[in-house]
Write a protein that binds this DNA or RNA. Structure first.
Lengths: 348, 348
DNA sequence: AGTGGTTGTCGAACCGGTTCGACACCCGTC
DNA sequence: GACGGGTGTCGAACCGGTTCGACAACCACT
């Protein structure tokens, strides 16, 4: 293994001079700097990350804590992971991926041992057990997902309440008066998935205010159960004209359910989902949707985290809670109720 | 920050004694060991990972290089990532996740700087540019995916050739004489995705040997294009009675395509896919399939990698190329051709 | 009592970087 | 010709662990 000492010897300078030649933190004459750089190139030198971390107390690594919980839809989570990973790398940070079931213990492990300069938590629950650990950690952290108590934390999430209202308002504006809402499994909600009831409650309240009947149910996150649930829901409320989805698995299952029932969208039923554009492409979802913006959230979280890592004074700044305004991506799957168009061939 | 020196002082021993009390690499009296452990608990001591890495030349981190290429189906890749991550953690290793587009450069970065003890490469191409870098690296590496040249590497993959033959044999055994095969995009194959033509060529050859007509096409990996391709394929070969899928996106799109055409499986068409069980659940795929076993491959790759990391003598052992025998998961989507059963209600 | 072998502990060196203080040198200036 | 201020380089200390050699204390034997 070639060390900075080898480079220094090859260039005929001291170790400290070699170090300064690389970092530029002190003035070094052009010739000497070039001699050092040449020597480094000749020897194939790369600084040892562990040694540098020890000396500088900076690892240039960010911990990414993902939670793959039962009853949650893994493909959706991937988008958030990539959103964080790609943006971190752009800022010069590597990603330590943690997928352990016991997130709190894993978080303590990587922060206490100083493996990371900071941490991003995904899929944050209302009363997330990882939060006390994060608050006690010496490194800063950023959250993707809104917990009940945000004190001492930078938080980024989609505004699920506005999303619920937006969905209802949109349908109401088109003339719908009876809607269906499929949320994630109740189990996910009771476990602390606050986004479930944040959207749901807001939608129910707005529906009440507008005098709309809104039938809200929880749906499975696995196939084929969710398909059966969708069928049952449509059976139970034949007069409903609009369907709202806050459940990626339900969205993925919907095309074949509608196909089986011979229902036309938006002629027989207007549909609005909530997922990411990338997700829609993978799952062939032709519905209008509210963009969940995982790449955007990853970008915001990493950027803020790196700000705090970088300067001690940034670490003193007030914490931010940023809820993204939902954006409606129109794919033409909503229309005035009862505006059935001639059925297509199914082939476009 | 509390160091081992603080613990030693608190326990009234030297730093080296404290170190030995933790590692157990020398005999330490029971009382002293307990004093050290108590002191560590009282002070909340955790060893600094960078310092330990520097001293031991071991980081206890494995690099995971994923490639999210254009025209490839991201949700399928996630299964492989989790397969590696979960198994690595079980063996005491953390995961450094690398998703950079320039995999060769990233690989050089993390190996040269000694951030990782070893590396797992996912989605390996036939002539993968990362392989020369890996061979030159001082750390061992393991591959998930079979390249053209395996010398000096431990390689794990599904046996795609056997898979292709198995699919054809299975259909032939049921009496099918005209089949369709949908592979990944041709672009993926020409770029070096060897698994594409390994399965395809083997299937074509076996079909020829058995006197079966096999129409093999490449299909898009994005929606909704792949759906249109499936429709066109079924239009072009109305007499084909069996469909083979080596394309996750095609599998995901198939239910609604068949639904739109009013085709019954296996009455009108027998179907066999190639994906993972987990994937089938997420995407609601009711078809028989050959298990791609991402968890198993991750397990094998990590286990072999850790073996080589652990002992210098294991590093001398001959390299292994392990191709998993394909396993057929029967979901009842194949039958003798023309054995149309009464159509279901689509609800079951 | 002297010898030899364990057992338990310590001090010092080392891993490979970074950083601070010291200082030699060169320039222009009074 | 002494003086002051940059500029460029070096030596030493430090980051926080691990590990090796030395050695004291203790035991059992002859």
């Amino acid at each position: 293994m070639v060390t900075i000492g080898d480079v220094a010897r090859e260039a005929g300078v001291s170790r400290s001079t070699a170090s300064y030649a690389f970092s530029g933190k002190r003035a070094i004459s052009a010739q000497v700097r070039q001699r050092v750089l040449d020597a480094a190139g000749r020897l194939g030198y790369t600084a040892n990350a562990g040694a540098r971390a020890l000396a500088t107390s900076q690892t240039m690594v960010i911990g990414l804590l993902a939670r793959f919980l039962e009853d949650e839809f893994a493909p959706a989570m991937l988008q958030y992971m990539l959103g964080v990973s790609d943006n971190a790398r752009e800022l010069g940070y590597d990603i330590l991926l943690v997928t352990e079931a016991d997130g709190a213990r894993a978080l303590r492990r990587i922060t206490d041992s100083r493996m990371v300069d900071g941490v991003v938590l995904l899929n944050v629950a209302h009363d997330d057990v990882r939060l006390p650990v994060l608050r006690a950690a010496p490194q800063p952290g950023a959250l993707v997902g809104l917990p009940g108590d945000c004190t001492g934390l930078d938080v980024f999430d989609l505004d699920f309440e506005s999303t619920g209202r937006l969905m209802v308002d949109h349908m109401h504006g088109l003339g719908h008066r009876e809607l269906l809402l499929v949320s994630q499994p109740e189990h996910v909600a009771t476990r602390g998935g606050a986004y479930v009831w944040r959207l749901r409650d807001a939608a129910l309240e707005r529906a009440r205010a507008l005098g709309i009947r809104l039938h809200a149910v929880f749906g499975e996150s696995s196939q084929p159960d969710i398909g059966a649930t969708l069928h049952a829901l449509l059976d139970a409320h034949p007069s409903a004209t609009g369907l709202l989805l806050n459940n990626e698995a339900a969205a993925a299952a919907l095309p074949s359910v509608l196909n089986a029932r011979g229902l036309d969208v938006p002629g027989d039923l207007s549909v609005v989902g909530r997922y990411s554009d990338e997700f829609a492409r993978s799952f062939s979802l032709p519905y209008s949707f509210v963009e969940s913006a995982p790449d955007r959230l990853g970008d915001l979280a990493v950027r803020q985290l790196v700000r705090r890592i970088g300067s001690t004074q940034a670490r003193e700044e007030p914490y931010v809670v940023r809820l993204l305004t939902p954006e409606f991506a129109d794919r033409g799957s909503t229309a005035a109720p009862g505006s059935r168009r001639p059925r297509g061939t199914g082939r476009s």
